[in-house]
């Protein structure tokens, strides 16, 4: 996917030169191998720093919220879905965003690679379907397909759902057999097992809120966890408070989460926070036939009322 880099640079360069946008949001090379950072280029020179490869995991819709500027975004499938969600939720206007569509063949699972190679990586590069990883311990060429992030293996829209220009050819739409298999595994547990599962899952959480900050749909000016009057949830390391945070944050994402994986990517403790949001994605898909960010003209299901809404839980 690093072949997109040149194209993104040239599109970004001309947009900035012609003054069509105030900034172009993409990624730039990080300071260590296998790292790229979200980056806003404001000048033609800065546009030359833009890169794209299989480590561009963060969600760039996070950087356009409530902006008054005109912004170009290099958007993968998931980013584009979050841009649509932003448009629907009045966080940005469609004519303020110039979407440079980036057809995506999946991002690599950095955590897994680091686990296998040790944290002292010295080189990471890719060539089509192959990635080469070198650390102080070993050097190997791997098939990218075998090292995709979990959310990329169940992605339904690798191509941007809306764009003004493309940075490469559209990729074939994948056939995902059962994207909710992980949720079904938990659904099959009995209540005690479920509770234990989620207690263990969140046990290491240090409440840094990096997951929330990385999430494009977590944009409330004051998050419920930061509110002090009233204080909705305790602020310490109490187990129930930690669970309340995760549980409520997930519910706030119901019908809005695109399963982009930015939250998990940002977590310093490796907590699989998508285990919560994925359940709600499954529910909205089954109950309302809804997946977030596909249609600029429709409001999310928890935001609308229809007489056809399922109501068999109300007695």
């Amino acid at each position: 996917m690093d072949t997109y880099t040149e194209k993104i640079r040239s599109i970004a360069g001309s947009l900035l030169k012609e003054g069509k946008v105030d900034r172009v949001i993409g990624y730039k090379k990080g300071s260590i191998p296998m790292a790229t950072n979200p980056f806003a280029a404001r000048t033609v020179e800065q546009a030359r720093e833009l890169v794209f490869n299989s480590t561009c995991v963060m969600n760039l819709a996070n950087y356009i919220t409530d902006s008054s500027e005109t912004i170009a975004v290099a958007a993968k499938g998931c980013d584009s879905r979050n841009i649509v969600t932003h448009i629907v939720e009045n966080k940005i206007k469609r004519d303020q965003v110039y979407i440079i569509g980036v057809p995506c063949s999946g991002m690599v699972d950095k955590r897994r690679i680091i686990e296998e190679f040790g944290s002292d990586l010295t080189e990471f590069s890719e060539n089509g379907d192959e990635i080469s990883v070198k650390s102080l311990d070993k050097e190997e060429v791997l098939k990218k397909q075998d090292y995709l992030r979990d959310c990329c293996t169940t992605c339904i829209k690798p191509n941007p759902v809306v764009y003004d220009e493309l940075a490469g050819e559209l990729v074939p739409e994948p056939e995902v057999k059962n994207r909710f298999a992980s949720v079904e595994k938990i659904e099959a547990m009995d209540p005690d097992e479920k509770y234990q599962y989620f207690t263990d899952l969140t046990a290491d959480c240090i409440r840094c809120y990096a997951c929330r900050n990385a999430c494009p749909i977590c944009y409330c000016p004051t998050c419920f966890v930061d509110e002090s009057g009233p204080q909705w949830v305790g602020k310490g390391q109490n187990e129930t408070d930690i669970q309340t945070f995760h549980f409520l944050r997930a519910f706030h994402c119901a019908g809005r989460c695109t399963d982009c994986g930015a939250c998990e990517e940002a977590c310093p403790m490796g907590i699989k926070v998508r285990e919560f949001t994925k359940k709600l994605n499954k529910d909205t898909s089954e109950l309302f036939g809804w997946d977030a960010g596909l249609d600029q003209t429709k409001r999310p299901p928890l935001d609308t009322y229809s007489p056809e809404d399922p109501d068999d839980f109300i007695k």
Partner: peptide, 20 residues
């Protein structure tokens, strides 16, 4: 909401919604 509460291990029978 009920589904999510059930999903994290609280018994479904503890949660009731009614329109009265």
């Amino acid at each position: 909401m009920g589904n999510l509460i059930e999903h994290i291990g609280i018994e479904r029978e503890r949660i009731h919604f009614s329109w009265i």
